[in-house]
């Protein structure tokens, strides 16, 4: 299951390279697709090695790989997310939805600290926060995925307050945030695998 999870999340990110780049070209520096593809291609290449580890260790190793490979601000942000998830899930034998929700709450706080940001500022946090909330409420995984996709779309009318997009001021309004979109892509793929494997 861990193997499928890693592979399908990586494949989803890589498949969305062009879309993420297009979104980032509109309001950022246009490298989000390429950066994410570089990081997640490396994870895909390491997927067997990662899947052979305990889930906490695998997530920590995945986070470290993203930190070292992505090459943009999204590297440390996604790196913090996965390393924090790994730390929280390490040693847990029974990982159910509520355990994942609790771990994601800690990981969300790590991303907020790393990015000096909070939900509502047109970033990946605008997807992570509702996903965490849905998981904590015990929502069906298909609903969690749908909420993630909707939350990414809902970043369009927000004026960016963080990152390169904030330089555009009001001109950032009307564009979906690339980091929110990549978070939704990751969430959708992860929910699909988790749903399938029960």
């Amino acid at each position: 299951m861990l193997s499928d999870l890693i592979k399908e999340v990586c494949e989803a990110v890589i498949a969305h390279e062009a879309e993420l780049t297009a979104l980032d070209s509109a309001i950022g520096d246009g490298d989000h697709g390429l950066n994410m593809k570089r990081g997640f291609s490396e994870l895909l290449a390491k997927s067997d090695e990662l899947a052979g580890q305990e889930v906490g260790a695998a997530l920590k190793a995945a986070g470290m790989t993203l930190v070292m490979k992505v090459g943009g601000a999204s590297g440390p942000l996604y790196g913090s997310l996965f390393m924090s998830l790994g730390k929280e899930l390490a040693g847990k034998t029974e990982i159910d939805q509520s355990v994942i929700a609790e771990a994601l709450a800690v990981a969300q706080a790590a991303v907020m600290a790393r990015g000096k940001s909070q939900p509502g500022q047109k970033t990946m946090l605008d997807v992570i926060a509702p996903v965490q909330q849905k998981l904590a409420e015990g929502a069906a995984l298909t609903d969690v995925a749908a909420a993630a996709l909707a939350a990414a779309e809902a970043t369009a009318p927000i004026q960016a307050l963080k990152g390169r997009a904030s330089f555009l001021g009001e001109r950032s309004i009307g564009h979906v945030d690339p980091g929110a979109r990549s978070s939704a892509v990751i969430t959708e793929a992860a929910c699909r695998v988790l749903e399938r494997s029960g």
Partner: peptide, 12 residues
């Protein structure tokens, strides 16, 4: 530069 030599940054 990023790890591939493009514009970006690299922790290493």
């Amino acid at each position: 530069g990023d790890p591939d030599g493009g514009l970006g940054s690299d922790v290493g």
